[in-house]
Design a protein around this nucleic acid. Structure first.
Length: 469
RNA sequence: GGCGGUAUAGCCAAGUGGUAAGGCAGAGGUCUGCAAAACCUUCAUCGUCGGUUCGAAUCCGAUUACCGCCUCCA
């Protein structure tokens, strides 16, 4: 039974989908005013891994993740680049798709954009005004937070205990327009000639929180299964989404709220954020790091735990990943001399490992325990690969299982297809030299190939080679 | 001030009452002409103090440190 930690109840709960066999989930995407940083990537990877696990379990997943393509930061970025908001959005949405593709993050079923849903947003805000949950103030529209009796239920905050302005990011002019400092903007009147849309309240643009309420309910229904996002979004963003959505629809919004932990950078373990200027862009990182390693590094930390981004930890991930690839290779080589048939005992062991893997992952996606089972499987693969006699079907079964399990983490293990006549002839020469116990020549050839990044391995089944990674 | 998280070996990290998973790095060994790869062995008493218990990393109390949220944030 799959259990997930629900922020709403602060407990692990058995996951029961609204519609059997289907998971409807919404994950907050980035504001596209810059390249994504590794924190954005972490969130995307965490929920992609969760999605993949659901799919592995046989669920059909409708995965909706938005792009915030208009807000203060977008306007600022456009101004700074002397271009338009849509141009900035286009550029960084493309960059997002490129970067996430490199990290083997599946595209969402639907990637809605705020600006493509303005009509629905306006209608949503109008409905809130009509119900008395929102009011206009000088071209802005605000949500009456206190009117929503459950306000604070997600973040477990008491409205009266909140310290207004504690984050030091409040706009005093905006606060002055509100009935209550805790109220938040649904619609913002346009200042000057900034990008805007016509609305019953004059020209303006949506507030930040409203787009997610609108798009989530539009594409997944008033009540859907999972809403995810970074921990920092719990309050106020997700709290506000609940207030808006439930006030409007009268139905429960998301059943389960999942929040991923942060990526911290450097020795002081500081949260990485754009405003602190200590962020690492995925775009830059991918120029020097193997995307698979980055993916593996992030995907193998449980989604709620913080990730400390350091070179040493990345190196660890690299070693682990290599180990898995080597196990895959070691076994794959034996297909050449494998006999027809299978080995029931080995296959039984594999099934047990997979069952243990599922047990681990069913516990709120406990990937640390899950990956331990994958290492177990790799060991089994290595041990099996060293047997004098091996069977084709069993090899295929191990390879298939290993491939399926690492795929949940977004990792692709592939047999190398090696083809190089020059290398092959040198290897043949070396084989002959070794037969004649001419080890000087043999070692010379091996060193020569190593200088070209080619590693030789002598095994009972013959000499193999692979490229140094 | 309110709410929350974390603290386990050199590093990453599992474990929520029964005597410390797994990985990386290190050490020793097997295999090998030597290697490579693999496999085997080895490597901690769980931030601190006190309590409950036959028994605690796990429960309770206190304490320390670090991190985060309280309308920019994944």
């Amino acid at each position: 039974m799959l259990k997930v930690f629900n922020t709403l109840t602060r407990q692990k709960e058995v996951f029961t989908p609204i519609t059997s066999g289907i998971v409807n989930m919404y994950v907050c995407g980035p504001t596209v005013y810059n390249y994504i940083h590794i924190g954005n990537a972490r969130s995307a990877i965490a929920f992609d891994t969760i999605r993949r696990y659901f799919e592995y379990k046989g669920y059909h997943v409708n995965y909706v993740s938005n792009f915030t393509d208009v807000d203060d930061k977008m306007i600022k970025a456009a101004k700074a680049a002397n271009t338009t908001v849509p141009a900035i959005a286009e550029k960084y949405i493309n960059a997002f798709m490129e970067d996430t593709n490199a990290l083997n993050i599946e595209p969402a079923t639907k990637h809605p954009r705020a600006t493509e849903n303005i009509k629905d947003i306006i209608a949503f805000v109008q409905a809130l005004v009509a119900k008395g949950y929102a009011y206009e103030a000088e071209g802005d529209v605000y949500y009456r937070a206190r009117k929503f009796k459950d306000y604070g239920k997600l973040s477990h905050q008491n409205i009266d205990d909140l310290e207004v302005g504690a984050s030091q990011h409040t706009d005093p002019e905006e606060v002055a327009r509100k009935e209550d400092p805790i109220d938040f903007a649904l619609w913002k009147g346009a200042k000057g000639d900034e990008i805007s849309w016509d609305s019953p309240w004059g020209k303006g643009r949506p507030g930040w929180h409203i787009e997610c309420s609108v798009m989530a309910t539009k594409y997944l229904g008033n009540n859907f299964d999972i809403h995810g996002g970074g921990q920092d979004l719990t309050f106020p963003h997700h709290e506000n989404e609940i207030a808006q959505s439930e006030a409007k629809t009268g139905e429960k919004f998301a059943n389960y709220w999942l929040h991923n932990g942060f990526v911290t950078v450097g020795d002081d373990n500081e949260k990485m954020s754009k405003s602190l200027g200590n962020f690492v862009m995925v775009h830059d990182l991918l120029k020097k790091e193997d995307p698979q390693v980055l993916r593996f590094f992030m995907a193998t930390t449980q989604y709620r735990r913080p990730i400390q981004y350091t070179q040493a930890n990345l190196e660890d991930a690299n070693n682990n990943l290599k180990h898995l690839q080597t196990a895959f290779n070691n076994l794959h080589y034996r297909l050449d001399d494998a006999e027809e048939g299978n080995d029931p005992k080995t296959e039984q062991e594999i099934r047990q490992i997979e069952a243990d893997f599922i047990d681990a992952m069913d516990d709120d996606f406990n990937v640390q325990n899950g990956i331990a089972e994958v290492y177990e499987l790799a060991k089994l693969a290595n041990v099996y690969a060293e047997r004098p006699v091996v069977f084709k079907d069993s090899i295929a079964f191990i390879l298939k299982t290993l491939t399926e399990l690492v795929n949940i983490f977004g990792i692709k293990l592939k047999a190398e297809t090696l083809n190089d006549d020059g290398v092959e002839s040198l290897i043949q020469e070396r084989i002959d030299a070794r037969k004649n116990r001419d080890f000087a020549r043999s070692d010379e050839i091996r060193a020569q190939l190593k200088a070209q990044g080619i590693i030789l391995e002598d095994t009972p089944q013959g000499t193999r080679w692979h490229r140094e990674s």
